[in-house]
Amino acid sequence: MKKRVALSWSGGKDACLSLDTLIHNGIEVVCLVTTVPTELGRTFGHGEKLELVKLQGEALEIPVEFITTSFNEYTERFIETIKTLKEKYDLNGIAFGDLYLEDHREWGEKLAVAVGIEALYPLWGEKENSLRMLKEFLYSGYKATVIRVREDVLDETWLGRQLDHTFFDDIQTKDLCPMGESGEYHTFVFDGPLYKKKIVLEDSEIIQLETTKKLEFKKYILQAK
């Protein structure tokens, strides 16, 4: 039986590379799943506007399902929603873009057991492979920009940078995971091989959050390729 999976979707490079890997391995990604804490009203982790995630779904022609939850009920609400999506999309798996953090994988696998489906980790490997993974993204054809940085490791000059070969060289001079696996930086993918349309991002400003800085786009549209 062909695998039909939901993909945990942040909108960044890891999620996008996971999507690409799954599809190229013959796995059908039937929906993208994004959590939205009620305390934020934005996506979990990246703090992105829901409108931008919706545009990614439109560009990829894959439906986006939002899981609205409080931080206190995060796991319970996630399980409840995936059970509902299991019936809606005839799911037999859920995929995550985690690279090597064991506690993240343990959480996802327990969730999958609770729902009665399989947990997939298409990018899973060793921490030492993170630089190779970043290089793989650079050559994948996808386009991403840095939208959020942790102030203890990167300053605001990194915001708005494209993930290109200059970025690849510069990130190696910093004492952090090259893929930002611990939240050192987050990205937004706006174009690439699976995108039927590209997302044009304009009119940006930098906003200050508790321990991070975020690049906010005031204008964003889908554009034919």
Score class of each variant (00 low, 15 high):
M1N: 10
K2F: 12
R4D: 09
R4E: 08
A6Y: 00
A6V: 12
S10P: 01
G11V: 07
G12S: 07
C16H: 04
L17N: 02
L19W: 06
L19N: 02
D20W: 06
D20L: 05
L22Y: 02
L22R: 01
H24A: 02
E28Y: 06
C31A: 08
C31F: 06
V33C: 08
T34H: 06
T34N: 10
T35V: 04
P37E: 14
T38S: 06
G41S: 04
R42V: 09
H46K: 01
K49G: 02
L50I: 14
L52I: 14
L52T: 10
L52P: 01
Q56F: 04
A59H: 03
E65S: 13
I67T: 08
I67E: 13
T68N: 12
F71D: 02
N72M: 09
E73Y: 13
E73P: 00
E73R: 15
Y74R: 03
Y74T: 08
Y74S: 04
F78E: 10
T81L: 13
T81K: 15
I82M: 07
K83T: 10
K83I: 14
T84S: 13
E87K: 13
K88Q: 05
D90E: 12
L91V: 03
G93W: 04
D98V: 02
L99C: 06
H104L: 14
R105A: 15
E106W: 11
E106L: 06
G108P: 11
K110G: 10
L111C: 11
V115M: 09
G116E: 10
I117A: 01
A119H: 06
L120C: 07
L120D: 09
Y121L: 12
P122S: 07
P122T: 01
P122L: 00
W124M: 08
K127M: 13
K127L: 11
S130D: 11
L131P: 00
Y139L: 11
S140F: 05
S140E: 01
G141S: 02
G141Y: 00
G141P: 01
A144N: 02
T145H: 00
V146F: 05
I147A: 03
I147P: 09
R148L: 15
V149H: 11
E151M: 13
L154W: 08
L154S: 10
L154V: 14
D155W: 04
G160K: 03
G160M: 03
G160Y: 08
R161D: 03
H165D: 05
T166Y: 13
T166M: 07
F167H: 06
F167A: 09
D169F: 01
T173R: 10
T173F: 06
K174T: 03
K174W: 04
C177D: 15
P178D: 12
P178A: 02
G180K: 10
G180M: 09
G180A: 07
E181R: 05
G183S: 09
Y185H: 05
H186T: 04
F188L: 15
V189K: 00
F190G: 03
P193V: 06
L194A: 00
Y195W: 08
K198N: 15
V200I: 15
V200K: 13
S204N: 10
Q208I: 12
L209Q: 12
E210C: 01
E210T: 14
E210Q: 12
T212G: 04
K213Q: 15
K213E: 07
F217T: 12
K219C: 03
Y220I: 11
Y220N: 14
Q223N: 10
Q223C: 03
Q223R: 14
Q223D: 03
Q223A: 11
A224C: 07
